[in-house]
Amino acid sequence: MQVIIVLIAASLLVALGFLAAYLWAVKSGQYDDKYTPSIRILFDENKKAKDTGKKSS
């Protein structure tokens, strides 16, 4: 039955890891704005230079 104790310790450790990740996410402000990042990710970084080059010519 000793193995149960090891397993429990391991599972608690994993769970603690997730808890820490969650707390870090809240702390770093990921829950402050749940909308803007969904738009931001769609912006194309490189598009800027090319696209305007075409348009203004």
Binding site: L12, A15, L16, L19, Y22, L23, V26, K27, Y31, D32
Partner: peptide, 16 residues
């Protein structure tokens, strides 16, 4: 934010 922390901790402890 503190409510989020509290929920996270309570959820974690509740599950375990």
């Amino acid at each position: 934010k503190s409510l989020y922390y509290k929920i996270g901790i309570a959820g974690f402890c509740f599950g375990n």
